[in-house]
Design a binder for these strands. Structure first.
Lengths: 340, 340
DNA sequence: TTGTACGCGTTATCAC
DNA sequence: GTGATAACGCGTACAA
């Protein structure tokens, strides 16, 4: 039977109930159970059970300097990619007894700064960052405070932090090779504006290099996806233009794929006739007939790797290890949208 | 210029730097700025700026008993519905200066219990719960500790907590009316097993009532969606069976819609010929030709309402107000899948 | 094996 | 208007 207290039970109450001292109870709950006599152990266990006791993490975090909290800054929580990575992060955290604080910043640098500072105030032990702004200075502060950082795909040169993400160059190469294989010679690259977001930048430049290297024709359209008409027009123009070779669209991420698919449907162009390939595998890509070819990112692995990096760095005493980069390979999933 | 300390700056250091007392600095940062002399204010501001000071929320949480933390228990973080609600929760939290701790439980009651206890140990000020298990006892403990609870669509009768969610009965009615309007007379209801999850239960029973009331023919298939073949067979049998009236599928949630769409495609049945309507609006429903009719849930509003309930209850001193239910209406989005 | 005493960084109380 | 001091709940030397 649990006793009904409207206040949380403290270690002191458990100690009294078990006729033991604070210390013993504390030991019991911090993995030093073996050092206690069996009798004492059962008494404490019983007392804690009766009172429904749970150590206060605020207090223990304050005392030991370890909050057992990991922070995650997400640029856009509604992006399936972010969620998929978050799933991996959450799993890895749980396996290590860590909890996760999630902050969504809606692609707003001001909010990113605010949330960063907030997370720091909770004494988080590590931070996984997926942000759009240039946060060098704020991040530098965190690094100086000894908080391990992992950047998801945002290679900010200045800061000493791990970087985990896709091997963008090879992913684009994979896409271009596939398109060329399938006979598409004139390409339109669709992306949101790269801005400071380095993966967008990396993918874009590799596209440009890769097109040249393969003697393909390539154009790019890097506009916000918020206004469908802009995209629609770009695609219509691309299709209408006289050309000597089949045409295809290459979408830089899931959002772009979604927008492009909408635009193609509105335009009435059948998939495959106009080729379509996108980075990021989504639930529905196999459903939109005849299926959309994608480059899947190993999202869960990316999330787990992020936490692993965090922990490794924390145990390594921070400054000693140089920061590293972990790159994962995209997986091509060929479907009807690149089959003529 | 920020000074490089590898430890976090404390209030004491700021006090020394500003030639003031801890108390004054504390006042400055806890909204009692006005009580300080202008001179003192600028001194503290400058010192804090120089040192990059931020109050330690662990410590203040310990002292004041307010962690400024809201917890959210999510049954399945990869379910778009959960994410959409979470978006609303996060926004509402941010507007109130609260932070969000997210726990994914992967539909596992054991993990739900574990996370619940973990969240409590962080002295969270409120909890939004979307769970599958029967957690009555654990939740009761939290209520007794004075933690406000909001259940997303899981009406656990015993516990004194707010319930926020969809008006399931009317949503099902809406679906049935729509299907009947469009001339579908034989229906197959697809759902994951209802188990203890009350929205599934509510939708299922309403379907059965509603079918009877309208003189329609209705069957139900409530199996896990993990094995596509089971669903596939059920649908094939349903379609193959001789009938007097057009047939349609009604999917209880987004997962079911996804599975049903896959199965129909595998079966080669064109949408609309066999009707399809699903609860939960998803990105891709408009893309799968000729578009899938859905009942959209106002997810962001649900998330925000959850946090509002939490805060209202906290300010009301907890026990006084009776627990309430907030129900939102689904919105019908008709598309080609219910047009013959 | 067990208990005592102190400090983590903050806020609240009470003096000045 | 300002400052000293005692908690908050816990972990951990150190002593017993």
């Amino acid at each position: 039977m649990t006793i009904t207290t409207h206040q949380r039970t403290t270690i002191l109450e458990v100690a009294r109930e078990a006729k033991a001292s604070k210390t013993s109870v504390s030991r019991y709950f911090s993995g030093e159970r073996e050092r206690l006599s069996p009798c004492m152990q059962t008494r404490i266990a019983a007392a804690a059970q009766r009172l429904g006791y749970r150590p206060n993490r605020m207090a223990s975090g304050l005392k030991r300097g370890r909050s057992k909290l990991i922070g995650m800054l997400v640029a856009d929580i509604r992006n399936p990619f972010s969620i998929a990575v978050m799933y991996g992060v959450e799993q890895a955290c749980r396996e290590r007894g860590l909890s996760l604080m999630v902050c969504n910043t809606d692609n707003d640098p001001a909010q990113e700064r605010e949330h960063l500072s907030l997370l720091a105030s909770y004494q988080i032990e590590g931070l996984v960052i997926n942000a759009v702004g240039s946060l060098d200075q704020e991040l530098q502060t965190l690094v100086q405070q000894g908080i391990p950082l992992v950047l998801l795909e945002r290679e900010l040169s200045e800061v000493e932090a791990e970087v985990v993400g896709l091997d963008n160059a090879r992913a684009i190469d994979l896409a271009l090779d596939h398109l060329q294989d399938r006979g598409y010679g004139e390409l339109l690259y669709l992306s949101e504006p790269p801005g400071l977001a380095s993966p967008r930048q990396a993918r874009l430049t590799r596209f440009q290099q890769g097109v040249a290297a393969r003697n393909l024709t390539g154009e790019t359209h890097c506009q916000p996806l918020s206004e469908p008409e802009t995209l629609q027009n770009a695609i219509s123009n691309f299709i209408a233009r006289p050309g000597t070779s089949p045409k295809a669209l290459l979408c830089a991420n899931g959002n772009a794929t979604l927008a492009a698919t909408r635009a193609l449907q509105a335009h009435g162009a059948p998939l495959g006739d106009i080729g379509l390939i996108g980075i990021d595998e989504l639930d529905w890509c196999e459903l939109v007939s005849p299926g959309i070819t994608t480059l899947a990112q190993p999202t869960e692995a990316i999330g787990r790797a992020a936490v692993e990096c965090l922990m490794r760095r924390r145990e390594a005493g921070d400054r000693t290890t140089p920061s590293r980069q972990v790159h994962f390979q995209a997986i091509l999933i060929p479907r009807g949208s690149t089959r003529r």
